[in-house]
Amino acid sequence: MADHGLKFEIESKTVAEFRTLDKSGELILQPEYQRKAVWPERAKVSLMETILLGYPIPEIYLAYETSPEGEQTASVVDGQQRLTSLLEFLNNAFTLVGLEDERLREKFEGKLFKELPDDVRREFFQYRFPIRRLSNLADEFVRAVFARVNRVNMVLTEQELRNALLPGPFNDFLKDCAAHQISTKSGIFSGERRSRGGDLEFYAEVFGTCIFGLSNKKTELSERYDKISADFEDYQSRSIEFLELLTTLSEIVKWVGRTRWSNIVDMFTLLHVSWGLRNELGNASPNQKMQIQDLLDQFQRTVSVMKRDSENGEAAGVLESLADMVDMPVEKVKKIVKDYTSGIRNSSDLGSRRVRSQQLALVLSANLKGCLSD
């Protein structure tokens, strides 16, 4: 059994003590490795109901750190969702809606914390949480505890575990990608996906694909992530190129309404194919970029129409327009679009990814050759 001199003291804290810690700035609710608060309101209300009933709650892990000057902070290793919800309720951020206990529902349904009777609020403040105290541990051990506790509890996504266990330059790069204007313009990530690290995982997978080639997401993402994270200096220059590509595409693509490029599957393919053509895209003139913009817009429209109904009159029109742009026979373009559309099914499968990338590359390369030679 490994001995790192770890100290895990068991104690308890009242709701009032947590409020005091938070007000003094000593409570760090969201350390860098923690996920964002994602509990739905029904879960928050259920926790408040548990406290009102005086029922027990699973222990909270706090990592205490004391400075040479005697200043102390307590970082939440496990229990962030519970404590965030608790403090929100104390600040009257939500009401008690959907209480399950009949007695409590009759008395407190729809009430804010400040609207509860004085004796109830006083008792609420005296409720004790069981605490597992971690004292002055090295950051790596705190992260390891965080990841292991949450892995056992099965409450974190794989990316949230990576964020905890693999901080550093690669993680910072992924955050830069997620914060890039292309993420906002495309509207590709829902609030829930962002809150669970799905945006970071997406860019990690795309970047890994650009470096190592297409793969099946389930089999190689973690291995690639570990490799890049461990040797990020080797990939520094390409990370800069990748961010530059995001800027180029954010300016070239027509982000009007929600297009196919706002879907994870299609954006993945666009980024992968564009990586192979990044020099041509980056060196294109303003006029040439307009042509590329029109092509990408026409391509995504054609895919959407063909996906709905490949035999209607609208499909014939969009196919002809796309064929003119790339100077190919209509039948050839029709096959390209059909093959791309077939690759949307089983979207993370290696074969499907390969088909989508091959077909988009055919169209984009043909257009680039034409407009760059003008």
Rank of each mutant, 00 (worst) to 15 (best):
Y127K: 02
Y225K: 11
T219H: 04
P169K: 03
A230Y: 02
F202A: 03
V149H: 02
P130M: 04
L174S: 03
L200V: 14
D172P: 10
S215D: 01
L249V: 06
N163C: 05
S222N: 10
L174D: 08
R143W: 05
R121W: 05
L249A: 09
E192H: 13
E158Y: 11
L214H: 04
R128V: 00
L200K: 12
R196H: 03
D176L: 15
G191K: 11
G197R: 02
R238N: 12
T219Y: 14
F124I: 05
S135A: 03
E158K: 14
V120S: 06
D234R: 13
A164F: 00
G198Y: 04
R194L: 11
V155K: 11
F173W: 14
G213A: 11
I240T: 02
S229A: 10
M154F: 14
F202M: 03
T209N: 04
Q236N: 09
T209S: 12
R148D: 13
L165A: 13
F242M: 05
V149L: 12
V145F: 07
G191H: 09
C177I: 12
L246S: 00
Q159V: 12
A204E: 06
L221T: 01
F202R: 02
G198H: 13
Y127E: 05
Q126M: 15
R121F: 04
T247V: 12
F141R: 00
A147G: 04
L245C: 02
E158D: 14
M154G: 11
V145P: 00
D234T: 08
V155N: 10
K185N: 11
S195Q: 13
N150D: 08
Q181M: 12
R128K: 04
F189D: 10
S183P: 08
C177D: 07
S215V: 01
G197H: 00
N150H: 06
A144S: 07
G191N: 12
D139E: 15
F212V: 05
A230T: 09
N163V: 06
T219C: 03
V142G: 00
E158N: 10
R148G: 10
F232I: 07
K218V: 03
L245T: 00
Y235R: 02
K185P: 02
R151M: 14
G213N: 13
T184W: 14
R121H: 04
R132N: 01
K227C: 00
S190F: 12
Q236A: 15
G168M: 08
N153T: 09
C210M: 14
